[in-house]
Amino acid sequence: MFKRLFSLVLVVALAAAFFPLFATIGDRGDVSPLAESYLADAPDALGSANLVTSVIVTYRGLDTLGEVTVLFAASAGVSLVFSRLGSSSDGRRPVQNHAPSELVVTGAGLLLPLIFVFGVFIFVHGHLTPGGGFQGGVVIASGVLLALLAGTLTELSHGMLSVLEMLSGAGYVAVGLLGLWLAGGFLDPRFLPTGEIGSLFSGGAIPVIYSLVGIKVGAELSGVIDAMRRRRVVE
């Protein structure tokens, strides 16, 4: 009862903290000066059509590097928590197990290459259309999930995952250092030609960086999914 009252008080306090926001926020016709300068300068300076991508990869590139690192830490944490759990008490009674039906297996075999190609398409075209490394990585992780569910892939090789992740993370930092050496600063993508806006090879190193992010995110989320999946108990 006391706890309930306390939560109610907390929600009311949240409302009180929010009240000035409700009073002042309204429809605006303009954006902040920083955003305005991004909108005006970024397309010409970087040659990338999607400004969200420019902000993520270039202007807030260090943020993204840290964010991918946090993702790596969380993924490692999930694997660590489940690695103890899996082997300790499993196998006493086999979980009732239904193999995926033949339709699912065949359909997954047809769909999986399409899904992976789609994921790669999303992160390679991240600087032109909505999408990018994070979305493409998630699509690839969903493809891995489908492969695991349909039994196309029974065991995910963790060595391969960690190698992929390591290489893409090191590549990310290396591209950033190349920007420091050849262009304006850390993670400056302009050491490659910026090209013409709207073509695939434009935006300097933005597609390279975003592809590396895509591979890294895909490997990390596949690791999380594989760690959380209940192991099929084999007699």
Binding site: V31, V52, D63, V78, L85, M228
Partner: peptide
């Protein structure tokens, strides 16, 4: 056009949110 900065921040925050949720769920299990 709308402000691209909050979009970029939210995009990364969603991915982090999934990772944090997965970590919390693993602790729950």
């Amino acid at each position: 056009a709308v402000d691209p900065i909050p979009s970029a921040l939210v995009l990364t925050a969603i991915v982090i949110g999934l990772a944090v949720t997965a970590l919390m769920l693993s602790f729950a299990v």
